[in-house]
């Protein structure tokens, strides 16, 4: 089996697996990285949303063979030594989560949105976040948390890399 090398949460990893194995299962079943969740496997729920080279993507849809040499970040790699990412802080401050199953994906989608658009309007949030389902119905709080995170990012001295 071929070895696939890529960066995962800032660390180089090498995985021996078939090239067509979706990255979600490489993460969860081979590497034991369980933050990205299975919700549908076909890219319609967003529960596995993570970052590929800084952009939000669906690991359930991307074979590991496509990932070689690229940089993957999951929810586990969002906080750094200095503490939680402002989006995570905002999620706690707004008490967003209910069951929590979709939230790693929601947070990663929000981080990617804010990197592109530091001051999103409600319409921008609707456009960027509507591919992530929350069955518990936390959308109103997610929206508030994104606005709060935008404020934190603007006021923060150091803009996180990720």
């Amino acid at each position: 089996m071929p070895a696939h090398q890529f960066m995962l949460n800032g660390q180089p990893v090498s995985v021996e697996s078939p090239a067509d194995l979706p990255l979600l299962w490489v993460l969860r079943d081979v590497l034991g990285v369980t933050g990205p969740k299975y919700g549908c496997g076909v890219g319609v729920c967003g529960a596995c949303t993570s970052h590929l080279d800084g952009e939000a993507f669906r690991p359930c849809l991307h074979p590991v063979g496509e990932i070689a040499g690229r940089e993957v970040r999951t929810i586990e790699g969002l906080a750094d030594a200095t503490g939680l990412h402002p989006v995570q802080q905002a999620w706690i401050a707004e008490d967003v989560a209910q069951c929590g199953f979709c939230q790693p994906g929601q947070i990663m989608a929000a981080v990617a949105l804010l990197r592109k658009n530091p001051q999103p309007t409600d319409a921008d949030i609707d456009a960027a976040m509507s591919d992530n389902v929350c069955r518990c119905g936390t959308y109103v709080r997610i929206r508030s948390a994104i606005h709060r995170a935008a404020l934190l990012l603007r006021s923060g001295a150091s803009l996180p890399e990720r």
Binding site: G35, T74, I75, I92, D95, A97, G100, F101, P104, I107
Partner: peptide
């Protein structure tokens, strides 16, 4: 706020298949 909020936002919260 939820006592498990931090575990959820960091991905540490474990569900059955985790």
């Amino acid at each position: 706020g939820r006592v498990d909020a931090r575990a959820i936002v960091t991905g540490e919260a474990r569900f059955t298949l985790d």
